[in-house]
């Protein structure tokens, strides 16, 4: 009896461990979205692409690459990522995808084959997108010319090469919920534009440190990505108007001009925003971000 008991316990334990492992490796699932009744609008979607910063990472502008056909290197603390080809090319792009697969990629970081994307693809932010924005974005993505060719594979440091870890990462850091309807526009923009992807420091596991939202972070080159909290910006002598102006012009209040990744953000994204949206983001960063409960804003 005693022996049988041991075996039963061992089997139960193995099942439990297996279940936990599967639970971890599988990662979380986003709440289902019913997108079937919505109609995508290409022009609105192009604007969403500008808000979400799709182009800077999925287009190699510097090398004269075609739109969304794959990006230049994105250097991070964890290695170098290359945004893939997301033109409607049948095999090299997303030409064979369905809207549902696109939504799962964007809101859940899940590829059509079920595998996980690295969080360098900021789905932890895009999961806040509204249903209509997702459908519009998909229409815009479908509208660009299909281009052959694939981006180089990511060049990562161990242990980040171990993709099985990504499910666990998602369990920790992905909270796949759309933005509540009562969010102010600036807050929605800060999420979708994924400011926190660079300006919030990360833990050793690559999750954002919720206690230090927008507090700045190190660059791989030994520099510093500045803090963009209202307090930090004010201390640095910036005003709401300075920030909004820098997002259209790239020019900082001291006359310096953005370089680094922020140059790409402005050139590929924020310079195309409406003045209203740039103002809303600037106001939110200065006045709203501190008071916003992090559990709803940034993923946690």
């Amino acid at each position: 009896m005693r022996r049988t008991g041991w075996i039963a316990a061992a089997v139960a334990l193995a099942i439990a461990a297996g279940g936990a492992g599967t639970w971890l490796i599988g990662g979380p699932t986003a709440p289902p979205r019913d997108l079937t009744d919505l109609t995508g609008d290409v022009n609105r979607g192009a604007y969403v692409a500008r808000l979400a910063g799709c182009i800077p990472c999925h287009t190699d502008s510097e090398a004269g690459g075609a739109v969304l056909a794959g990006g230049g290197p994105l250097k991070t603390e964890f290695g170098i990522f290359y945004g893939p080809n997301i033109t409607p090319h049948e095999t090299d792009g997303v030409g064979a995808w369905t809207l549902e697969q696109f939504a799962a990629a964007v809101t859940e970081g899940r590829a059509p084959d079920g595998s996980h994307y690295y969080p360098s693809f900021p789905y932890a932010f895009y999961t806040r997108l509204s249903d209509q924005d997702i459908v519009d974005l998909w229409a815009a993505v479908r509208s660009v010319p299909a281009v052959e060719g694939r981006a180089p594979p990511h060049d990562l440091a161990f242990p980040y090469t171990v993709r099985a870890g990504l499910g666990a990462w998602k369990r920790l850091y992905l909270d796949p919920e759309p933005a509540p309807a009562d969010w102010p526009r600036g807050r929605y923009l800060a999420e979708v534009a994924h400011c926190g992807a660079c300006h919030t420091p990360r833990t050793a596991l690559g999750g954002r440190d919720a206690d230090r939202r927008f507090a700045g972070a190190p660059t791989p080159g030994g520099g510093t990505i500045p803090a963009i909290t209202g307090a930090a910006l004010t201390e640095a002598g910036w005003t709401v108007e300075d920030l909004a102006y820098s997002l259209v012009s790239g020019v900082k209040p001291d006359g310096d001009v953005y370089g680094g990744a922020m140059a790409r953000v402005v050139q590929g994204g924020t310079q195309f925003w409406s003045a209203t949206d740039r103002d809303a983001l600037a106001v939110y960063l200065f006045e709203g971000a501190l008071g916003a409960p992090i559990t709803e804003g940034e993923t946690q």
Binding site: I25, F158, P159, W169, A204, L205
Partner: peptide, 14 residues
């Protein structure tokens, strides 16, 4: 659990 799972990520990454 994730700490263990991610192949020693803790130490190396720190």
């Amino acid at each position: 659990a994730a700490l263990g799972l991610w192949a020693g990520a803790g130490g190396a990454a720190a």
